[in-house]
Simulated scan of single mutants.
Amino acid sequence: MEKALWYLFVASRGGANRVRIVRRLRDRPRNANELAEALDVDYNTITHHLDMLKDHDVVEPSDHDYGKLYFLTDRFERHAETFEEIAAEVDAE
């Protein structure tokens, strides 16, 4: 999981936006539209990042199709300390 986190947030384009998404989801579950509005990022960009985060087991969607909420996974939460370390590096850039 740690390698995946470094890749998602540092080694690939869009890492800073993915950090922002995870931080918002830590506050509470949200849908893609809420994230797009809160972060002032295009909806399609948000869905792309959510797909990447889902593929790497960082987020999981609810079962509903319309207004689908995204949650942080338990696996990701076990690596929260690593995420904070990575996020601090991304913030410093």
Rank of each mutant, 00 (worst) to 15 (best):
54 K>S: 15
10 V>P: 00
38 A>S: 14
89 E>V: 15
1 M>E: 07
62 S>L: 11
58 V>C: 06
4 A>W: 14
16 A>C: 01
16 A>H: 01
74 D>Q: 08
38 A>M: 13
84 E>T: 08
66 Y>L: 13
34 E>V: 02
67 G>P: 15
86 I>N: 07
93 E>Q: 14
5 L>Y: 02
78 R>Q: 10
29 P>T: 02
22 V>K: 04
25 L>D: 01
90 V>S: 07
90 V>F: 14
75 R>P: 13
51 D>I: 09
90 V>M: 07
81 E>I: 05
32 A>I: 01
72 L>P: 12
16 A>I: 06
35 L>S: 02
9 F>S: 03
90 V>P: 14
11 A>C: 09
24 R>K: 14
21 I>A: 09
3 K>G: 01
69 L>F: 00
52 M>W: 15
10 V>Y: 14
31 N>Y: 00
30 R>V: 00
85 E>N: 12
63 D>A: 08
82 T>R: 07
2 E>N: 08
73 T>M: 11
71 F>C: 08
15 G>P: 14
75 R>G: 11
10 V>H: 10
54 K>T: 15
87 A>D: 03
37 E>R: 06
66 Y>W: 11
42 D>W: 04
35 L>K: 07
9 F>I: 04
42 D>L: 05
62 S>C: 05
40 D>F: 09
79 H>F: 06
32 A>L: 04
68 K>Y: 07
1 M>Y: 12
60 E>F: 09
16 A>S: 04
57 D>Q: 04
87 A>P: 09
2 E>K: 05
43 Y>A: 02
45 T>D: 02
91 D>G: 01
6 W>G: 02
88 A>K: 09
55 D>Q: 11
3 K>Q: 06
40 D>Q: 11
62 S>R: 06
8 L>D: 09
45 T>E: 10
77 E>G: 10
10 V>I: 15
33 N>Y: 13
63 D>H: 08
90 V>L: 05
75 R>E: 12
93 E>C: 11
11 A>S: 09
49 H>A: 04
35 L>E: 01
85 E>T: 15
89 E>H: 15
57 D>K: 01
79 H>Y: 10
4 A>L: 11
52 M>R: 15
14 G>E: 15
68 K>G: 08
20 R>N: 10
3 K>M: 03
7 Y>F: 14
92 A>H: 07
66 Y>A: 08
23 R>G: 02
85 E>S: 13
15 G>E: 08
61 P>Y: 00
